[in-house]
Measured scan of single mutants.
Amino acid sequence: TFYNFIMGFQNDNTPFGILAEHVSEDKAFPRLEERHQVIRAYVMSNYTDHQLIETTNRAISLYMANL
């Protein structure tokens, strides 16, 4: 899942690491979701930090390219 992918960046001092920290603390994050459209919609609806949203979009693109 995307959640498992992004958790691989925990403790990294990178934008993906920052995203992983936010996702791990977000109890409502769709952890079992595999459809990138649902993940993107969730982030757009629940996150207000523009940098975090952009990082999510980049992470989703990388995740999709590696499926």
Rank of each mutant, 00 (worst) to 15 (best):
T1D: 05
T1E: 03
F2D: 01
F2S: 03
F2G: 00
F2K: 01
F2W: 04
F2Q: 00
F2E: 00
Y3M: 01
Y3F: 13
Y3D: 00
Y3H: 03
N4T: 11
N4V: 08
N4F: 09
N4R: 07
N4S: 13
F5I: 03
F5T: 00
F5W: 12
F5K: 00
I6D: 00
I6R: 00
I6L: 14
I6F: 03
I6P: 00
M7R: 05
M7Y: 03
M7W: 03
M7H: 02
G8I: 07
G8T: 14
G8V: 08
G8D: 07
G8A: 11
G8R: 11
G8E: 09
Q10N: 08
Q10M: 15
Q10R: 15
Q10F: 14
N11R: 08
N11D: 09
N11L: 07
N11Y: 12
N11F: 11
D12W: 07
D12S: 14
D12Q: 14
D12N: 09
D12K: 12
N13M: 07
N13E: 10
N13P: 12
N13I: 06
T14G: 15
T14H: 06
T14P: 02
T14C: 06
T14D: 06
T14F: 04
T14Y: 03
P15Y: 08
P15A: 12
P15K: 06
P15L: 12
F16N: 01
F16Y: 07
F16K: 01
F16E: 02
F16A: 02
F16C: 06
F16R: 01
G17M: 05
G17K: 06
G17N: 04
G17S: 08
G17A: 10
G17W: 05
I18W: 12
L19D: 01
A20L: 04
A20E: 03
A20Y: 06
A20V: 05
E21T: 14
E21S: 13
H22A: 11
V23P: 11
V23W: 03
V23S: 01
V23A: 04
V23L: 10
S24V: 07
E25L: 15
E25G: 14
E25T: 14
E25A: 15
D26E: 04
D26F: 07
D26A: 01
D26M: 05
K27D: 10
K27N: 10
A28G: 13
F29G: 02
F29L: 03
F29M: 04
F29W: 05
F29E: 03
P30R: 02
P30H: 03
R31L: 06
R31D: 02
R31T: 06
R31P: 02
L32R: 09
L32A: 11
L32H: 13
L32D: 14
L32S: 12
E34I: 15
E34T: 15
E34H: 15
E34Y: 15
E34M: 15
E34L: 13
E34R: 14
R35S: 13
R35V: 05
H36A: 15
Q37T: 11
Q37P: 05
Q37S: 12
V38D: 05
I39H: 01
I39L: 05
I39D: 01
R40E: 08
R40D: 03
R40H: 10
R40Y: 11
R40V: 13
R40K: 10
A41C: 11
A41S: 10
A41H: 11
A41K: 09
A41W: 10
A41R: 10
A41Y: 09
Y42C: 03
Y42W: 05
Y42A: 02
Y42K: 01
Y42D: 04
V43P: 00
V43L: 07
V43T: 04
V43D: 00
M44S: 09
M44D: 08
M44C: 09
S45P: 01
S45H: 09
S45A: 14
N46R: 06
N46Q: 07
N46A: 08
N46S: 09
N46C: 07
N46I: 05
Y47C: 07
Y47K: 01
Y47G: 02
Y47V: 04
Y47P: 02
T48C: 08
T48N: 11
T48K: 12
D49K: 05
D49E: 07
D49T: 06
D49W: 05
D49I: 06
D49S: 08
H50G: 10
H50N: 13
H50W: 13
H50I: 13
H50P: 15
H50Q: 13
H50A: 14
H50V: 13
Q51M: 13
Q51L: 14
Q51P: 04
Q51Y: 11
L52H: 03
L52P: 01
L52G: 00
L52V: 05
I53Y: 05
I53D: 02
I53T: 04
I53P: 01
E54S: 08
E54H: 09
T55V: 10
T56R: 02
T56F: 15
T56I: 14
T56H: 02
N57W: 11
N57G: 08
N57Q: 11
N57A: 09
R58L: 13
R58G: 05
R58A: 10
R58N: 09
A59W: 05
A59K: 03
A59P: 01
I60L: 15
I60Q: 01
I60T: 01
S61W: 12
L62M: 12
L62P: 00
L62C: 11
Y63C: 04
Y63Q: 04
Y63T: 01
Y63D: 01
Y63S: 02
M64A: 10
M64Y: 09
M64R: 09
M64H: 13
M64P: 01
A65M: 12
A65T: 09
A65C: 11
A65K: 12
A65Q: 12
N66R: 11
N66T: 14
N66V: 13
N66E: 14
N66S: 14
L67F: 10
L67V: 11
